[in-house]
Amino acid sequence: MQNILLPVFYLPPISWFSEFLNEENEIVFEQFENFPKQTYRNRCNIFGANGKLSLIIPINHNGAREFKSIEVSYRENWQNLHWKSIKTAYQSSPYFEYYEDKMVKIFEEKEKFLLDFNLKSLETIQQILKTEKAHSLNTEYVKNPESIDFREKFSAKADSEYYAEEYYQTFSDKLGFIKDLSIIDLLCNKGPETLTYIKNVKK
């Protein structure tokens, strides 16, 4: 087993799940880092009718820096907007209707902190995947941890360094394949094959 220090993302990309669900990896989540902007910590990418679409969770700018203290803003009804975007993007995909009732629950609860919201969402995804991967939270910030450090591994702005087979996506006939989107994309398009697909993701 190897210890992996992972950031906590919002409906994470497929590459993140390939590390999270790897049986060789013991997962520790980072909660004490300074909150970095423009990352998957408060955004996910789905495949919309015009291509890649970023769904971003707004945060309260209250001076908090530590990730565990970052508060979600509910000044606008972003949960409704995100769910509508997901529904519009995937309602004609093969498996959306199978998971719709569970997925919608992600957007019904109002967690105060982004960390809690992301962890609750992950719980729901694990229920859909029928996995029970254990994880723990770190107890302090360590700049150079003994664990394998993945805190800066998954960039929302650069091309993914992970490789996986192309699969049919709702709009790929028109716009081509988009790799390493949110786990939502894979679930809606591959359904029960999702776990097998994740195991075959290579770095």
Rank of each mutant, 00 (worst) to 15 (best):
E193L: 14
D180G: 08
V8L: 11
N50Y: 13
S160Q: 05
W16V: 04
P58W: 13
I70V: 13
E193W: 03
K110V: 01
F47G: 04
D149N: 14
I148G: 08
K143H: 13
Y168P: 06
Y168S: 12
T124M: 02
T139I: 15
N34A: 08
E76V: 09
L21Y: 00
P13I: 02
G191P: 10
Y99C: 00
F150I: 09
L195E: 07
E146W: 07
V142Y: 12
Y98K: 00
E66R: 15
D101K: 08
Y98L: 02
D149M: 02
A64W: 04
P94F: 08
Y197M: 05
D116S: 06
K199Y: 06
S172I: 03
Q126L: 09
Q169S: 10
D173E: 07
E193Y: 04
Q91H: 13
G63N: 10
K179F: 08
E152T: 15
E30C: 06
E166Y: 10
Y95R: 00
N22K: 08
V8W: 04
E97D: 14
F154Y: 15
S121Y: 06
S15T: 01
Q126W: 01
I106S: 00
V72C: 03
N118M: 05
Y95F: 15
A164S: 13
Q91W: 05
L119G: 11
K157C: 03
S92Y: 07
H135N: 10
F113T: 04
V72Q: 03
E76I: 13
G176Q: 05
V28H: 02
G191R: 01
L81G: 10
N25Y: 01
K190M: 11
S160H: 09
G63P: 13
P94H: 08
Y74E: 11
S155Y: 07
K133H: 06
P13C: 05
E140R: 13
K52Y: 05
E66K: 15
E19A: 04
Y141S: 07
E152V: 04
I128P: 05
I59A: 04
A164C: 10
Y163L: 11
K202M: 10
E165I: 05
K174V: 10
K179I: 06
L129R: 03
E166D: 05
S73A: 09
P36E: 12
G51Y: 07
L11V: 03
S18K: 07
E111W: 07
N189T: 12
I27Y: 05
T124A: 00
Y95L: 01
V142I: 15
